[in-house]
Design a protein around this nucleic acid. Structure first.
Lengths: 170, 170
DNA sequence: TACATCTATTTTACTAGTAAAGTAAATATG
DNA sequence: CATATTTACTTTACTAGTAAAATAGATGTA
């Protein structure tokens, strides 16, 4: 009963099963942290898959949407290097992704008049259209995965995740 | 003030900044769900990077460790297809990964005597050694990212994540 | 038994992403 | 004002992962 992963009254899920298996294979270790961090990773993976499925409708990959989103949030042209630093993608990836987005008319590539090395990336009207259409869908999906949580619980979840992020070295 | 992403008294983090930018670009939308789901994804990404960095010491990728871990948890040979279903990896990937793990002496590949189509994968002593060495390190890392949370908070975090996982369709 | 169908895995052909080398523009230094 | 260094991006060469086709063994059906 002390090796029980699931809370009383909850039916065990995938993460509970994995945690229980680890506990059985390594009885001398405290595998409880897997129930938390592993669960965060599992939820993120499933939510990410759903996002990618939705983006298929617009023929845009998740990485491409990351680029479009960075430009949409900025509301003005960004340097390629600025897009790198807001997306977790490499410089080489930004070059390739923007190539493809430019070819498809979603992004415009310009040169800085101040500095001939820098590339400025900017949303076209079509690119903004993709974000305009996709963002509400994404928010609705995210909202639906929070449907079972009260406003207080959502707030509490953010507080707890913020602490984890802090410990991970934000 | 109603557009404030961070809780009072908390200094804003990356996710707060992204959320605030979305809110400014799309004032008519409620972007609060991003503060939760986006934060889950961000924490997962950072924890995943740390895991991969640690695994480098054993010259094992994250996917390879997923395979080794599945076999270690089972404690007995698994069919290739069973490894597929516990890892989120494709069958083609399991073939390639096990090729490489067999070549490196961490996994043994056998055939089922019952059914000539099925491949049985099993940890070698060296393979178990990698898991034995890596798991405590991983647990310690996960534990350290939970350092700021009391036992009650950890429990609460699991309860909340479990609800999200449930809504995502476990 | 013969043959169509189903199942488990592997192979092939491809895409996404990256590190490191390459290019070109800007800045610093003597 | 040369020219060495640094910076910003692109190109190249490579790796990881996958979907779909191929292979081969098992099973159903007449």
């Amino acid at each position: 009963m002390s090796t029980e992963a699931a809370s009383p009254g909850e039916r065990p899920d995938v993460v509970d099963r994995i945690q229980a298996e680890w506990a059985q294979a390594y009885p001398e270790l405290d595998v409880a942290p897997i129930g938390v961090i592993g669960r965060i990773q599992h939820v993120a993976a499933v939510a990410g898959q759903r996002l990618e499925r939705n983006l298929e409708r617009h023929d845009v990959s998740r990485s491409e949407f990351d680029v479009l989103g960075a430009l949409a949030r900025a509301g003005h042209p960004l340097r390629a290097s600025e897009v790198v630093s807001t997306t977790m993608l490499s410089g080489a990836s930004i070059t390739k992704l923007s190539d493809s987005l430019v070819r498809r008319g979603l992004v415009r590539r310009g040169k800085s008049p101040r500095d001939g090395r820098v590339v400025l990336l900017e949303l076209t009207a079509a690119g903004r259209g993709v974000v305009d259409a996709e963002l509400p869908q994404r928010l609705a999906d995210d909202e639906s995965s929070l449907a079972g949580l009260s406003p207080g619980e959502r707030e509490q979840l953010v507080v707890l995740l913020r602490k984890v992020a802090r410990a991970l070295g934000d």
